[in-house]
Amino acid sequence: MASTVIGHGIIIEGEITADDEVVIQGTVRGRITGHEAVVVEQGAVVEADVSAASIVVGGHITGNVTVHDRIDLQTGGRLVGDVKAARITIADGASFKGNVDMEV
């Protein structure tokens, strides 16, 4: 039942720690630590270091990203920062600037 949703008019400046899924439609500045998936939807702006089990990027992320499982960079998504992940997908039309560190 319980997933955290940051609606598209909402701005959080600070740190988010979540046990469940986090869906971001608004703006987050600071740090996000999720034990489940973090979904950054289209139109969302994240200026934060993100750590999660998996991340879906439909919006904009500026910051370093650490993912235990996989990160999906969707069309229209933008990621500026270094990525550490086990698996990564970058869709056609996505923007990405940074280093990728995959466990080989």
């Binding site: 609606g7 008019g9 959080i12 720690t17 469940d20």
Partner: peptide, 25 residues
């Protein structure tokens, strides 16, 4: 989720936010 919570922010039980939260909705 978007349909369910249109312009609504939900901070679930297991979630901890340290910082300021402001905006519309």
């Amino acid at each position: 989720v978007k349909n369910m919570a249109d312009n609504v922010a939900m901070i679930a039980q297991g979630t901890f936010v340290r910082g300021n939260l402001h905006g519309e909705g």
